[in-house]
Design a protein around this nucleic acid. Structure first.
Length: 511
RNA sequence: GACCCGGUAGCUCAGCUGGUAGAGCAACGGACUUUUAAUCCGUAGGUCGCGGGUUCGAGACCCGCCCGGGUCACCA
């Protein structure tokens, strides 16, 4: 073991041994705190030179010994405060502990606040408790303050290591901690919003004997005792709708879906999906639900990340470049109809074209491999190329062609279309919703068509879920349903470029 | 899956047309009782992603592989 340790780690092991020899426990059970770093900073009154005694715990993130004194900085979740250790105040015995401290150690301190010559609020440490010895050096960079701006030098920059060792990324980067707090607050706000509308949060199976509700390749696993295959869900949809059949009229679920497909900057094999279903509502009602929800989500994110809302003590530890550009949402969002917007963008009646003509249009707008694509797929690709990817501000695209939307009810007054909308922003899909199909005869026909595709080798097609059809045959209330990809929504609200930046532990190959 | 870029000390990086591996920070020893990228003196620290090949000699050149980042494709 010890030959695996580099020299830095060896030095820390030696300090650990020295601490134990001195009777100092290197790993504590707890510490009574009176303040966090931010409230301690505020406890020294403006202009005052001396303040109350505070007890603060955190991690040593800076360490500047000067002979018989040491200056350091102690960081907690939100902020940091300077520590001043003075041999004459602490005594030789306590100072031996101070001499054995390292960058990264978790400690608790107690002492009065004072203001240094340069004006920085500081704890004059009177007692130190080691809470956890850091035996492995954290990749701290150095920080410099330039005209009130925080500039990092030689920081922890390798994206691979930051994703693999998120704990280290979080430990040395307060702005990363803050980003994930914002994500959590966003999800809480969404729950509050739905709870306030009388929705019930439910949990449906992740392990499913039959997957459905979307088109994707699933993960397959096996249950030993039942000796049967089980799939990780690709969507929550079919179970949530069963609950509406059962009389739970407003239900939602926030959870992980799993899709066995590629990994790139907008795809992770497991991702967080919100789905909610509301009996008696159609897609028009669901549009206003989505607007309300997005405003609540955006406000929650802004509360954590908008620089003007961050207390000064917390803002001072964030590099300027870590403040994301956040969109301002102003509902009602514009609505554009699928067919007219496509025709306007294409300058031709695309829907009237035969399939070869459609291929020509698709080729012209840069769609690849048009020869292999079905008509619905071609339509979708052309729409994506001409309309979707140009939508900047949140916009509902409504009334999709029937051939594109096998799960949506036909549009009242125009059976060629469906009552479906998708919300787009920055060229990306944020929400997808329907007036849900509740006709079991129609549903069976569509599922059987899917099953034929699956039998023909389409790995994304789903089979006939007889249990789901049985539920629908009992009578399924009309309902609106919405799916929102939480990771993508948070990416949009925080201007993130890579889904890995919004997932704490993204899927990686093993080291 | 295709293409481009990258992998060198704990961290951030340099290393020229091939000639025995470098810096800053971190670490260790010393000086320093209000510093803040502390400063000053000294020391130590490396399987140059892995495996082959070319060569008198490879971190560098060639082939294969692994890992990551980016772009594109796929993901109705």
């Amino acid at each position: 073991m010890s030959e695996d340790l580099n020299f830095v780690m060896k030095a820390r092991r030696e300090k650990l041994a020295a601490l134990e020899a001195a009777g100092i426990a290197p790993f504590a059970y707890g510490f009574d705190v009176t303040h966090d770093a931010g409230s301690a900073l505020r406890a020294l009154a403006e202009g005052a030179e001396e303040g109350p005694v505070v007890r603060v715990a955190g991690r040593l993130v800076a360490w500047r010994p000067h002979g018989k004194t040491v200056f350091g900085h102690l960081a907690d979740q939100w902020s940091r405060i300077q520590l001043y250790f003075r041999r004459d105040d602490l005594g030789d015995q306590v100072f031996t502990l101070v001499d054995l401290l390292d960058l990264g150690d978790v400690i608790g301190v107690s002492g009065p606040l004072f203001r240094t010559r340069t004006g920085e609020t500081t704890i004059r440490v009177e007692s130190v408790t080691l809470l956890a010895k850091s035996l492995r050096p954290l990749p701290f960079g150095k920080e410099e303050r330039q005209d009130d701006r925080l500039v990092r030098h030689s920081g922890f920059a390798d994206p691979e290591q930051r994703y693999r060792q998120r704990y280290a990324d979080l430990a040395v980067h307060p702005e990363v901690r803050r980003r994930f707090v914002a994500r959590s607050r966003m999800i809480s706000a969404i729950r509050r919003q739905l709870d306030g509308l009388g929705y019930l949060e439910v949990e449906t199976p992740v392990l499913q004997p039959q997957y459905g509700g979307a088109a994707a390749r699933p993960f397959l696993t096996h249950h030993n005792t039942l000796d049967m295959p089980l799939y990780l869900r690709i969507a929550d949809e079919l179970y949530l709708k069963r609950l509406v059949v059962g009389g739970l009229e407003r239900v939602y679920e926030v959870g992980h879906d799993f899709r066995n497909e590629g990994i790139d900057r907008t795809h992770n094999p497991e991702f967080t999906m919100l789905e909610f279903y509301e009996a008696w509502a159609d897609y028009g009602v669901m549009m206003s639900r989505v607007e309300q929800l997005l405003v609540a989500a955006s406000d929650a994110v802004r509360d954590v990340l908008a620089p003007e809302r961050i207390p000064a003590a917390e803002r001072s530890v964030l590099p300027d470049e870590s403040h994301p550009a956040m969109p301002v949402l102003r509902p009602p969002f514009p609505r554009v109809e699928w067919v007219p917007s496509l025709h306007a963008a294409a300058g031709v009646e695309v829907m009237a074209l035969d399939t070869p003509g459609l291929r020509g249009v698709a080729e012209r707008v840069g769609v690849h491999g048009v020869a292999d694509l079905s008509r619905p797929k071609l339509l979708d690709e052309v729409f994506q190329a001409l309309v979707e990817c140009r939508i900047e501000d949140p916009t509902f695209v409504i009334d999709y062609p029937k051939e594109l939307s096998p799960l949506a009810k036909p549009k009242r007054g125009n059976p060629e279309l469906t009552e479906r909308f998708e919300l787009f922003a920055r060229g990306k899909e944020v929400a997808n919703a329907f007036s849900e199909l509740n006709d079991p005869i129609d549903q069976r026909a569509r599922l059987e068509a899917q099953a034929r595709l699956k039998a023909a080798g389409d790995e994304e097609a789903v089979g006939v879920d007889e249990d789901y059809l049985r539920a629908m045959e009992y009578g399924m209330p009309p309902m609106g349903g919405v799916g929102i990809g939480i990771d993508r929504l948070f990416m949009y609200l925080t201007d993130a470029a890579n889904i890995r930046d919004v997932i704490l532990f993204p899927t990686m190959r093993p080291e």
